[in-house]
Design a protein around this nucleic acid. Structure first.
Lengths: 232, 232
DNA sequence: AATATAGGGTGTATTTCTTACACTATTGCT
DNA sequence: AGCAATAGTGTAAGAAATACACCCTATATT
């Protein structure tokens, strides 16, 4: 019962703020653009979304091409559509953020497409000038993550599979940009009972080695139908 | 230093879940479509976004045309881009939700455009079948609101300017779909010190009239740089 | 005038969570 | 043997959350 309809096409991009964590700092993966507009500027990895792929798939493509990894944690952040944000017309961008274990890729960052000169991790607190409205997108994404880690165990996406409680605490400290009390942090975190204590210890440190833990997704799902509260 | 760039146009829609609150229930404003696709189906108010307007402006336009009101509280929710969601091609929609005081418009709902046969408030818990992926959009918006009212005073957007504590409690109960304890609710709400107790009382009730309160935005901004916690 | 109805308004005791805070233990290195 | 560096641990006080029941007041009814 449908009349003849024209076929319409959307033109829009997807950009992704990719977070990593190392040396006690949050890092963002930026690319140096090899194309106009903003040639030679730093910016977020992103492409035009094809007509036959979902937005999520486009972001997975971005992630794969820039990191070589599949299955990275990602979530849609916000859609930006200011009239001035793109010199080629009002091109909206659907922004995502992603989190990965930095150890998983090491320094194997190659510019994977012609659009990109090079890719590099930048500390969140020392970002260069960025193309388009990408600075704003990064700010919004860290705000969202700050809130989200309070009730959801996404922080573990940034840690190696096996980690120490100190590493976990440092991660929360980096995300919230504030110091936490060691004893209280451990008490609270262990009480949630979502960590699995391993029989292993840290290696290669020149001091007392710490116990290693894993995030126990099964326990998490069993215990928390809904949410945690890691904040404060 | 920019090469000649083609001018590009995005085609996409904005849809808005408009919430109201009356008779202890959350209501959603739906329109009966007068156009293909999904002619004669219920759906969310929404339009294509013009090339010279921001997405926010497009949503303000939707709100004005359907309610006659300006300055309605609104927020971007999510961008939906499934390949199958629109029969005319992959047309993404940027979904928003909005909240308004139902008393402000009463029953003056007129179909304001040719696209719309009629507009009507529907209880959130008894929605008809909906066009496109609009059911899904509504579900996502109520989830977001459930979370958001826990740390932000947006619930007041749904109440008349002057309201009783019972009305406020009923609103939270409707949003969370659970009963709250009267004494504990009042204790907690009043302790935040963001309500202004008025010298007025409810009128037209056949029982002891309740005190009226206002949300005091100034106090709120002064006291809470960041967030509240209304939950639980 | 008396009574019924319907919702308004209030306090306390218990438990749980949050916070503040400092020392001993272990390991590798010199 | 001793130093350097981080791991690991408990308690007391205050704050917040929860559970819970009765009297008050305005209007409507008889």
């Amino acid at each position: 019962m449908q009349s003849n309809l024209p076929h319409l096409q959307s033109i829009f991009t997807a950009d992704c703020v990719i977070f990593g964590f190392s040396e006690g700092e949050l890092k963002v993966l930026l690319i140096e653009r090899n194309e106009y507009p903003f040639k030679e500027w730093w910016g977020l990895p992103g492409f035009f979304v094809e007509h036959n792929e979902t937005i999520d798939d486009a972001v997975k493509r971005i992630l794969l091409e820039h990191t070589g990894l599949k299955g990275i944690y990602m979530e849609q952040l916000y859609t930006f559509g200011d009239l001035q944000r793109h010199p080629q017309g009002r091109i909206i961008t659907v922004a995502y953020y992603a989190m990965l274990r930095l150890e998983a890729i090491g320094n194997n960052l190659k510019p994977s497409t012609d659009y990109v000169r090079k890719a590099q991790w930048h500390p969140l607190n020392h970002l260069p000038d960025l193309a388009f409205d990408h600075k704003n997108i990064i700010e919004k994404s860290i705000e969202k993550i700050r809130r989200k880690v309070s009730h959801s165990p996404i922080a573990f996406e940034l840690l190696p599979e096996k980690f120490t409680l100190t590493q976990l605490q440092q991660l929360y400290e980096a995300i919230w940009d504030k110091k936490l009390d060691k004893r209280n942090f451990r008490k609270k975190m262990l009480k949630y009972n979502i960590l699995k204590e391993l029989d292993e210890k840290q290696k290669g440190v020149s001091y007392r080695a710490a116990k290693l833990y894993k995030f126990d997704k099964r326990k998490y799902n069993k215990i928390f139908k809904n949410e945690l509260n890691f904040s404060k």
